[in-house]
Design a protein around this nucleic acid. Structure first.
Lengths: 226, 226
DNA sequence: TTCGCTCACTTTGTCGACAATCGGAGCGAT
DNA sequence: ATCGCTCCGATTGTCGACAAAGTGAGCGAA
């Protein structure tokens, strides 16, 4: 169930996707320097498209650029992640509130089915947290879509989404917070079904706070070990 | 009191700033096609840096790119602006809540002084709404900084800020909503002084809702006229 | 030995030219 | 007359080479 990169569009777009994937999966380590010539060679393209891709990734906050000194992979330190989860709480809370009044009955029903699939996966393979993360993000993305606010969708879907996946890859090895998360997702869907926007927002905010708490503790342990 | 563009950094950065300025001020009309060769000529640079600038501006949502069909200036239609103000309400509300507990006394005092200056300007030159807008945005930006959340600052400062200025240039000709806005700003500062985050958030959200209502009505009138 | 300077190499920034693609004008057929 | 096809101009996408800036090693002097 690997994500099929369509390999379509301009070379700059291809490079953007491939680089984003490499960064998110940790293939390129945090803070690592990105050599333009080397990457262009590896992807079989000139430096022009690659530079455009780096600009794009800079906008996504996946890389940090310093004039005349090249680009480096972004580092997700504790503060950055804390900020990210704070903003996410506000934005996803808002998305949830809007989705409660704007999603169609069918969309909400599909959300429930998504969670069913999700539950099946958990039962079948308790350890495979990876696909859970993807499914989880799908859930959140569907709600963002339900908000009918394009800016919100872009923000949550294209930008924060990648940072979040990057974070997940770093932390998801240990944290199997799947069961309480699934439970919370169910509650959120229930609130959506009742068209209770305030409750849905509240639940989503708690859900994200819980996720942050879990990740925060994990970072503490990692720092202790180091 | 024009913003001094430092003309520093790479040519791509220069192009980004100049293009952003031209778009925000309406020098480049909404939806207008951006010809790479022509712009490169005008700015005295090659197409490479210019293309990088366009990528950057695409990330800022100031231009929309279509593969093999070039870039066009973004169009701020009613729905887009509505979405923007919705997101702004959530983000600036959050910034205000955080700022209430995180800003120093000195920063809050400076905010008050900023409003004093602002008031002076209104009394002196009732019509000069332009500088008001800049001052207003400064006010909001200072609060974003006070949140101590870098992601929030970037979001509000670098991205939405530009879209907002673009909107202001289109609408600020008529709408002199300076007096109630100033009053609301004062209330917000008062809440910050009392370190009342909840109240500060509430007031900021109302303030932005009010701004949207005002702008929304203006759009209605424009559409009626057309 | 250590500090500072110089010089060469690496890497980024920029440009001009070539290839690929798109949009539109003009022509012909139904 | 209208629709569709073809070809041409214009514009975007891409590449390779050159210029400029930064980086680090090596040498020399205190």
């Amino acid at each position: 169930m690997l994500i099929q990169v369509p390999e379509q569009g301009t070379l700059a777009d291809v490079a953007t996707r491939r680089l984003a994937h490499s960064i998110v999966t940790g293939e390129l380590a945090q803070g690592q320097k990105l050599n333009e010539a080397e990457l262009a060679e590896r992807y079989g393209m000139g430096r022009g498209p690659l530079r455009e891709a780096l600009r794009h990734l800079e906008g996504m906050r996946l890389v940090k650029r310093i004039p005349n000194a090249g680009a480096r992979v972004a580092v997700l330190d504790r503060k950055t992640l804390s900020d990210l989860y704070g903003v996410r709480e506000a934005l996803e809370g808002m998305a949830c509130r809007l989705a409660a009044t704007r999603m169609t009955d069918e969309e909400i029903a599909n959300l429930g089915k998504l969670l069913d699939q999700h539950e099946q996966q958990i039962k079948k393979e308790g350890g495979k947290v990876y696909s859970q993360s993807e499914g989880d993000l799908d859930f959140h993305y569907q709600i963002a879509r339900g908000s009918r606010n394009r800016m919100l969708m872009d923000l949550l879907g294209n930008e924060q989404y990648q940072l979040l996946r990057m974070c997940r890859y770093r932390t998801s090895r240990k944290a199997a917070r799947t069961k309480p998360a699934l439970q919370q997702h169910r509650q959120i869907v229930a609130a959506l079904e009742q068209r209770d926007g305030e409750l849905a927002e509240l639940l989503m905010r708690r859900h994200i706070q819980g996720a942050w708490k879990s990740i925060s503790e994990m970072i503490d342990k990692e720092e202790e070990a180091a």
